[in-house]
Amino acid sequence: MPGRSTRRSGRAWVPYAYLAPALLVYGVFLLFPIGRAAQFSLFEWDGLGASTFVGLDNYVTVFQDGRLLEAFGHAFVLIFFFSVLPLAIGLLVAGVLNRAQVKGLGFFRTVLFLPQVIAMVVVAVAWRQIYAPDGVLNGTLRALGLGHLARPWLGDYAFTLPAVGLVGTWVATGLVIVLMLAGMTKIPREHYEAARLDGAGAFREFLAVTLPAVRGEITVALTLTIIAALKTFDLVYVTTRGGPGTSTTVPSYEIYRRAFETGDVGLATAVGVVLTAVVLVITAVVNRIGDRS
């Protein structure tokens, strides 16, 4: 069709016109600031006065400052609570549920997914009440005669990080169960029957049939929850502000604190760049492992 090809070449600008509004907003408010972040991270600046070029000094500081290293360490601990634990529970629960069909699964799915749509600040406020010295958790422990276990959960050096982490487990587990169930219901029933004819028990069946089939869903679950763990901010800001001491500080909270409270703008930006690199590397590794079949 000669007519069409001329029209097409004559209107080569059309696709770009459709892209223009998105590129404008996206470019100005996201891409450009990313570029500026690379630049900011090479300077020492308090946010008001003159800035000094310091080369890579801010990055060196990220890897030497005890408090910042601690923050990254805490983020990795949170990966256990936000990703590893929910994945283990999710696989187990979905594996059990997948063996028999039950009525009302839709209702349970709605409930399990609910924490995903509630603002993290609301979740944090709720859990603060639960963990409070005279809150529901300590009240329950005392009622069960386990009063000696009661403690200020968000004011205890040893228990606060796990306590905050378990809130993440609460948020993520439903999502992971729903994801795993979605993957498992797609497995043809014959695969299980074949495994049973081979004399496989429930556990062997799970390892040989179920687990390989949900590899893609596992990758998605890990990607989503690991990113959530690494960029935890609202939860820490509302529950502990990094305390007691520095026992629950995380990279995002340090970025906020350094940039807007202590006036280390360059260093805060460098922490942001490092955090981004960590997120991208872990995402790439998880997807790489997931793609390999």
């Binding site: 600031p33 990313i34 500026r36 972040a37 990113i227 960029k231 942001g272 981004t276 997120v279």
Partner: peptide
Amino acid sequence: MVPTEAFIVPL
């Protein structure tokens, strides 16, 4: 994929 923390400070 990029977290908000990557660009919020310069922004």
